[in-house]
Design a protein around this nucleic acid. Structure first.
Lengths: 264, 264
DNA sequence: AAGTGGTCTAGACCACGCA
DNA sequence: GCGTGGTCTAGACCACTTA
């Protein structure tokens, strides 16, 4: 009738319970591997390590060699896609907006602008032909030097070549304002897709996140006059953000879902 | 200068590359542990297993005992919080709406209604006192028998006791319509919070998801006449959904972020 | 019945950061 | 230098599913 619980599972379950009920608070140290060997009368380190591994991959603990295992500490920032379209305070960069709501932390970003072949995801959304070139503006956004998210924007090369959009530094009025000038029309609509998944090794490296931390991939496709203008891929570490939307009833919403490209 | 890559890491990297570049398509079988032992001239199963474990926890592969390891197959459904507020087609259940956009799969849901002490997250959002009772409507939504998400709604008990909201079956006109009748006012505003994290064991069990599959926790707080009415917690497995929002420029948006409770 | 992965033992040597 | 975790070896026995 009953099935025996593997020892490593029992170890993971016990420690998880301690963490979730607050007995082990964020930042607290767990028993060492040696201590757990004693505690559970188990003979092989591999068994204890297997148990700890479960919790690492759940994002609950992290090893800090050579001190031991610790409960992770998380602090979340509000990530608000809708801030892109707001007017007051004067619309600037979405990240600057986002951080303005936090005190005492200093934002910075590494910006890199290049001309590349459009990745497939971008091609689909911007409606480009295979092999077509796009301008790419890639940013790593940091708070007190800690990476907070990756933000890669793509637009048709012909639209922005030689303009301020391709300035590999901060653009004070915001890159969206640059696009609006070029188009003679405001960006006034967007479609957000949010995928939840584990990070690729490359992303984990750039964001300095360990195993057990999932990411949100937020793909924002922006329109002006019903024409696609820009596509931005944000990679958002799950342990450092909460995504927030305001929603209001809109009587004109006909409810047509609109995803002309295939979901990933 | 260079540091040697551990064998298990090499195994994980090689197999991941094969999966990501399409050499190993979703559903394809990976080499068995025994084959990898040969291939990498490694002596201990533990080493090979450690490598495979990396990919399992990245959600890329899954063991199907006793056949071997396979590349996971994913198929994503559009999850659209904004569908809650749409009028045409006639507003019904958000899940029914959601599924109406898919063909050939039959939706079902297990519904359970109860009266409980409000969990802390609900208490904060509904503005309740500690220990106060709420009505809970908990649903597991399935497609072809496979769980697609968990949906737990909470409202003040005094508002809905004895009404159709607490009917533990499908409510054809939608539970939001019931609330609107009781209040004499439409639900017309909501605040969505989306947290990205690994599932708790309980959630993983209910959703039948394995290790390496992160979830989105979508907390929707709904208002009528600026009063909080309902709070719903949705748990959304990342491998089966894409979250979609439409966004339009709103000149009246003053940009005040509004989260009266602390982020989790 | 055969072959797969699941669990566990009992060691070994190494890398790293701190006192 | 000491203690921590990181990696790996070389086995053992078991549980499960499919042919």
């Amino acid at each position: 009738m009953k099935k025996p619980v593997p020892v490593y599972q029992k170890i993971a379950d016990d420690l998880r319970a301690l963490i979730l009920d607050g007995s082990l608070r964020p930042g607290a140290q767990l028993p060492t591997e040696a201590a757990l060997l004693d505690q559970y009368k188990v003979k092989a380190r591999a068994t204890v390590r297997q148990g700890l591994n479960v919790l690492i991959n759940e994002g609950l603990i992290e090893p800090r060699r050579p001190r031991g295992y610790f409960v992770v500490e998380r602090r979340r920032l509000v990530y608000r896609p809708q801030a892109e379209f707001r007017r007051r305070p004067p619309e600037t960069d979405i990240f600057t907006n986002l951080v303005a709501e936090e005190d005492g932390r200093t934002p910075s970003q590494d910006i890199e602008v290049s001309i590349v072949e459009a990745p497939a995801a971008i091609r689909d959304r911007l409606g480009l032909a295979a092999g077509e070139l796009v301008a790419a503006r890639r940013r790593v956004r940091k708070l007190d030097g800690v990476p907070y998210n990756l933000n890669d924007s793509y637009v048709r090369l012909s639209l922005v070549q030689g303009t301020d959009w391709m300035n590999p530094g901060d653009v004070a009025r915001g890159t969206n304002a640059v696009l609006a000038e070029l188009l003679g029309a405001e960006l006034e609509q967007a479609l957000d897709e949010i995928y939840i998944r584990m990070p690729l090794p490359e992303e984990a490296r750039r964001l300095e996140i360990g195993p057990g931390v999932p990411v949100g991939e937020h793909i924002a496709t922006t329109f002006a006059n019903d024409n696609v203008v820009q596509c931005t891929i944000n990679i958002i570490p799950g342990d450092r953000h909460v995504i927030v939307y305001d929603r209001v009833r809109n009587p004109e919403d006909t409810g047509q879902p609109r995803i002309p490209w295939g979901a990933q």
